[in-house]
């Protein structure tokens, strides 16, 4: 076995290390710390960019509007200065704290004018409200009658199913395989699933996923979350949102 040229011998419990050993170890430690700096910089650089997606954690706002409960809970708020042909309400999906949908919290308020408090989650012009359930109250005022769906025909779309809450900003990144388990948990808990479709420039469009009869399809999509998918179904415009009506049988893993 190789041996140190010198007669020095390191014993850890001795008060000091032999001079030569201490000198060599010092050089090694300096080199190791320099490697640590280099690796920290390389690995920090290695991760990809993160989109601008915001969860206004700790900032509660008050909203007024009309509740709808299908296919997923939403708050409809009149848009100021509506241009002809544009949707006249904004539709904010409502979810409960943590990894749960707000179905139970809003069930008795369907079609009613309400005031509620919540935290905004937003990305790419899409906005969601994380509801403070106990703040929800019916208030006097005229309930809105939101627009009905407008069919845009049958399409096959390629994208990734994500949970709308994390993807819009509660987590960043809120998609791809490392986030898959969380997305499954959120969708299983009632968070609306959306199909995120990107164009060739990487711009995302979001399609709220519902069953063929417009029903929520949280449980049906769980096996497909975060996988590269092609889904064929009828695309509809509902206010300012796009909806994809499809059967899970049409899901094709790519």
């Amino acid at each position: 076995m190789p041996e140190s040229d010198s007669n020095e011998f390191y014993v850890g419990y001795h008060p000091t290390a032999p001079l030569g050993v201490a000198r060599r170890t010092r050089s090694f430690v300096i080199a190791a710390l320099l490697c640590t700096v280099g690796l920290a910089l390389v690995l920090a650089k290695g991760f990809g960019p993160l989109p601008r997606a915001t969860f206004e954690f700790g900032s509660l706002r008050t909203f007024e509007g009309t509740i709808s409960t299908t296919p997923y809970p939403a708050l409809h708020v009149p848009r100021p200065g509506v241009i002809d042909g544009a949707p006249w309400t904004s539709r904010y999906h409502i979810v409960a704290p943590f990894k749960f949908g707000a179905d139970a919290a809003v069930a008795e308020f369907d079609g009613k004018h309400v005031r509620l408090k919540g935290t905004l989650v937003h990305r790419d012009g899409r906005t969601m409200i994380e509801l403070v359930p106990e703040s929800l109250e019916e208030i006097p005022g005229l309930a809105l009658s939101p627009e009905g769906p407008q069919s845009l025909g049958e399409h096959s779309l390629i994208g990734e199913i994500v949970d709308s809450k994390c993807f819009l900003g509660v987590m960043n990144p809120g998609n791809l395989k490392p986030h898959r388990a969380c997305a499954v948990r959120c969708i299983s808990g009632g968070i609306p699933p959306v199909l995120c479709v990107r164009d060739t420039d990487g711009r995302a469009e979001y399609f709220l996923l519902v069953g063929e009869n417009g029903e929520p399809m949280n449980k049906a999509v769980l096996d497909y979350v975060a996988l590269p998918l092609e889904i064929t179904g009828e695309v509809e415009r509902l206010g300012d949102q796009l909806i994809l009506r499809a059967s899970a049988e049409s899901f094709r893993i790519l």
Binding site: T36, A40, F47
Partner: peptide, 21 residues
Amino acid sequence: LFLGLFMGVGALLRPNATAET
């Protein structure tokens, strides 16, 4: 040193990153 540099540079390069990430 590693954690400070990794997280500090990570936050500078990706300002949208959350603390928990």
